[in-house]
Design a binder for these strands. Structure first.
Lengths: 259, 259
DNA sequence: CGCCTACTTGAGCGGCATCAATGGGTGTGG
DNA sequence: CCACACCCATTGATGCCGCTCAAGTAGGCG
């Protein structure tokens, strides 16, 4: 690939059609027919990549569109009057952001790039119109929102009942799974965010994060060098996180269709 | 008096049309035309009321429909393998439940009645079809889901950063507002759930709830007799909760001593 | 009346925040 | 090239909030 040339983005978007996007089975086009994907393509705007720290939108901005991460990563966060920041989520390629703004037509939180990040913009009113025409798109949109509700509730549970160790284990496995689904290694990855962001998201102090990582390494569960993470004992982490480890925990096949 | 006759419910549903429901401006019909409301009515099934403790659905059940509370109240909760319960929400008249099941077509949590509770059932596939035909219904559905995402994120923030006192203040004000919107008193109401449910939802032990209520009363913020609550100082609660109280806040004549 | 569940109150402790200090990495300017 | 600033990560010391354990009280219902 040649260097980024801003004037080329509209042209190149012809090639970056959803149909050819490696993420289309993770993203909104999932389970759409080719013809439908073309229609979706027509409303997608592919924007100039964001640099690390740049904002996609800020809390209080008018809501115009929802966004899909194409490459890189985002964090979303709210800021209180007193200036404290609460990270509400990390968003990897194939994931949508901005869904929380549909209700009020104002973004209740900010989104900023954790690294150089490409974004697909989906103007919401056009997306609504299209969803009326394409039942499977409407369904997919509802599914993704439902998924987010479910994920938030799992997170709530974690914050209410889980220890710091358990929360970190959950988060690591979440990243592991999300990297894995994209075909990357699920045991070796580079976290795009600072320890303090991770801690903030989990409701923990950065110092606590540091101690947790040390303890996890002492226990032989992972190897960490800065943001470079290698998971060494996923079953141990899975047990900590309260989830079932794959088939290791079998013996009791509760309701066989787990996930 | 005519006792409850189950065979009557279909008949009586003719009179319980959304168009005449006092909640229709809080619920799914909000901003629908009369004709559209009629169409919605046609798919709504009004079921036999649930008794206290009865389940509307259980975690693991197949997802068929989403539900609106018509009267009474529900709690939704997850249960872990080890039997611990996590309350994920309380649902008052006009509010929807079951949205978290759309993604997987399985209810990830259970819903049970906190008191005698009437429910409107909205078969999801029919609702989807209808939403394709009625753009404002689609929009309303997306809005309600978006609202839930936002609410969950606020809750996450509370769990991550707020003290027990602040969380309780938030919850009390949330109930206050939700009662108020239905035309009931926003300062005097009866909580339909046990302290332990409240505490569970907030990530706090029942003992802590007890101590909090005592402290709130000592501070003159409220009067509580069991589940009967009277809010005496909403501005103080609002300040605690981190929200802006109306315009009283800057001239804070409210705090006279305790800190 | 006894049982059960919900709620209250007290005593003690532990997990995690906070405060403080240090070291490493990276960008910037002399 | 080094000096400096700044951010991020780490580590130790200390303290507090809210959990846990334990006991007692009150209300609902057979």
């Amino acid at each position: 690939m040649s260097g980024p040339d801003l004037s080329d983005f509209r042209v190149s978007s012809l090639r970056q059609a959803c149909a050819h996007c490696s993420l289309n089975q993770l993203c909104l086009p999932m389970s759409l027919s080719e013809a439908d994907i073309e229609q979706l393509d027509a409303i997608v705007e592919r924007k100039r990549p964001l640099q690390r720290g740049e904002h996609l939108y800020r809390g209080g901005d008018d809501f115009q569109a929802i966004y899909a991460v194409r490459s890189g990563s985002l964090k979303t966060f709210t800021t209180t009057e007193s200036g404290e920041e609460q990270v509400t989520g990390f968003h990897l390629p194939g994931e949508l952001v901005g869904l929380d703004a549909i209700n009020s037509w104002v973004h209740p939180c900010s989104a900023s790039a954790l690294e150089t990040t490409s974004i697909c913009e989906l103007p919401f009113e056009q997306l609504e119109d299209l969803a009326s025409d394409i039942p499977s798109l409407q369904r997919q949109l509802l599914r993704l929102m439902s998924k987010e509700i479910f994920a938030d509730q799992e997170m709530l549970f974690a914050m209410a009942r889980r220890s710091a160790e358990e929360r970190l284990a959950m988060l690591l496995l979440s990243f592991s799974e999300r990297f894995g689904r994209r075909g990357l290694s699920s045991t070796r990855f580079r976290l795009p965010m600072a320890r303090s962001d991770l801690g903030n998201y989990l409701g923990l102090a950065p110092e606590t994060m540091s101690r947790l990582f040390r303890r996890f390494q002492e226990n032989g569960w992972l190897q960490a060098e800065g943001r470079e993470i290698q998971l060494l004992d996923q079953p141990a982490l899975a047990e900590l996180s309260g989830r079932q480890a794959r088939e290791d925990v079998d013996s009791k096949q509760l309701s066989d269709g787990t996930d």
